[in-house]
């Protein structure tokens, strides 16, 4: 069980006039090698929650355990670096973090910080740059010379090179064109890791995520299997969530008398059943 969160609370700006509770009694258990989608409106606490997973924020009370590494909310934490090696975070607009002279050096930066040897860091950097589809010709270029999509990929390689067991992705494709977005997502799906993806794209969630974690106003509303989540009509209407396009299409067909054996996760299978059943 890689992540266990118990009664986690987080209060912003404690004892100040603008104090507010961003996370309320969060209880969450996540399993290895599953793909989780973390969803909720802007300001629901998604970003706050993921910052707790590698101790960038420390809760006001509660317990967090990541791969048997415990983050304390009531005393000083030591060796947070060890934890940060376990949990890689790709932040929103991650290309902002690039700073080294060359693309290669920038990807090596993370591993070197975690005391990996120079040659090993280089090997890792090359491996992951290739994985995200950065051409070798670009390795010695300054990251600032690359295009927006390429920069994003380099930044992502910089996190993958840490080889974390858990990957937290905060809207990793925001602002990219649909094709670049698809390319990047496919890289993540190909990895055998625990993935927590923060996103607003329900089509993506519906097709790829194993489970949905839904936050609202600092509360964990539910965590459950993706199709289960989107077919809970009461929940969907209570929080005014939009349905994934595919499910919406299937529902409309069902209303008109089409019958289905199951909820389909891709268009191809759905159309097949419409035509041949």
């Amino acid at each position: 069980m890689p992540i266990e969160i118990e009664k986690l609370n987080f209060i912003y700006a404690k004892d100040m006039p603008f104090e507010y509770t961003a996370l309320k009694d969060i209880d969450l258990k996540l399993q290895d090698n599953k793909f989780y989608a973390l969803i909720g409106k802007t300001g629901s606490g998604k970003s706050t929650l993921i910052q707790h997973l590698n101790a960038l924020l420390i809760g006001s009370s509660g317990k967090i355990k990541v791969n048997n590494f415990e983050i304390y909310t009531d005393k000083k934490n030591k060796n947070l670096k060890n934890l940060r090696k376990e949990v890689g975070v790709v932040f929103q607009f991650s290309e902002q973090q690039l700073f080294e002279e060359t693309v290669l050096k920038d990807v090596m930066f993370g591993p070197l910080n975690f005391k990996v040897s120079e040659s090993e860091a280089k090997a890792k950097a090359i491996k992951y740059l290739k994985l995200v589809g950065i051409d070798e010709k670009l390795f010695e270029k300054s990251p600032f010379e690359l295009s927006g999509g390429q920069k994003r990929k380099v930044a992502i390689a910089g996190i993958l090179a840490l080889e974390p067991q858990i990957l937290v992705l905060d809207e990793p494709t925001a602002g990219l064109d649909p094709e670049s977005a698809k390319e990047i997502l496919e890289i993540f799906f190909s990895l055998n890791k625990t993935i927590i993806l923060v996103t607003h794209d329900f089509d993506l969630v519906y097709s790829y995520a194993d489970e949905v974690i839904f936050l609202d106003n600092g509360n964990l509303i539910t965590k459950r299997e993706t199709v289960d989540f989107f077919t809970d009509d009461e929940l969907i209407s209570k929080y005014q969530l939009e349905l994934p396009s595919l499910l919406n299409f299937q529902n409309k067909l069902s209303e008109k008398g089409f019958s289905f054996t199951k909820k389909h996760k891709n268009l191809k299978d759905l159309i097949k059943e419409v035509i041949y059943e």
Partner: peptide, 30 residues
């Protein structure tokens, strides 16, 4: 930016002089 670099193992509080310089650069350049 500090959060992003911390996740890449930067320690803004401790470290040797060389690491400190690197840490500052990783913040200042971006």
């Amino acid at each position: 930016i500090m959060n992003a670099q911390r996740s890449r193992g930067v320690d803004y509080e401790e470290g040797k002089i060389k690491e400190k310089i690197q840490a500052v650069l990783s913040l200042i350049v971006p």
